[in-house]
Amino acid sequence: MSAQHYENPEITFHPDHSGGTKKIWKIFWVLSALTIIELALGYFLYAKHGQLGAAAVLSTKIVIGILTLAKAYYIVSVFMHLGDEIRNLIMTIVVPLVLFVWFIIAFLADGESWKNLRNTRGKSRTYQTEEVSKEAVESHK
C-alpha cells in the first residue's frame, strides 16, 4: 500500500496526504454542531412565532445565515480540499463569488421595493397590506 504517485507532469508539488482521518471526523462534528444550533434557532423562531419583534426575527435569521456560511466554508475548505490548494487557484474560485454580495443586496432590495409599490398602489395611497385592505372593505360594508 504505497502512497499514490501521480504521473502527471503538470503537477509540481504533491500535498502531503499521509495524515489520518482525525481532521475529517472533527469537521463532521463541527458541521453537525452548527446544524444543530441552526435547528435550535429555527425552532426558537417557530416556538416564539408572533411574539418576537421584527428586529429580533431578522437578527436570528442573520445569525442562522452566518452559521450557514461557516458550514459552507468548512465543506469547501476541508472536504473539497480547496484549503490545501495553492493561493492562485483559491483566488480564481473565491473572488468571482464575491459578486453574490451585490446580487443579494440588489435583488432583495428590488423585492422589497416591489412590495412597497404594490401595497401603496404605486405610492398613490398610504401603505397597507392586502389583508388590512380586505378588513377595511369588510368594515366599510
Binding site: 501521480y6 502527471n8 507532469p9 503538470e10 503537477i11 509540481t12 508539488f13 504533491h14 500535498p15 502531503d16 484549503g83 490545501d84 490548494e85 495553492i86 492562485n88 487557484l89 480564481t92
Partner: peptide, 25 residues
Amino acid sequence: MGSTAIPTGTKWWSGGKSPFNVSYG
C-alpha cells in the same frame, strides 16, 4: 495550505507545469 513547502520564487507561469499545481481535469 498543504504541509509540502513550496520554495519561494517558483516560476508558476513559465510553462511546463500547471500554474495552479493541479491537473486540467
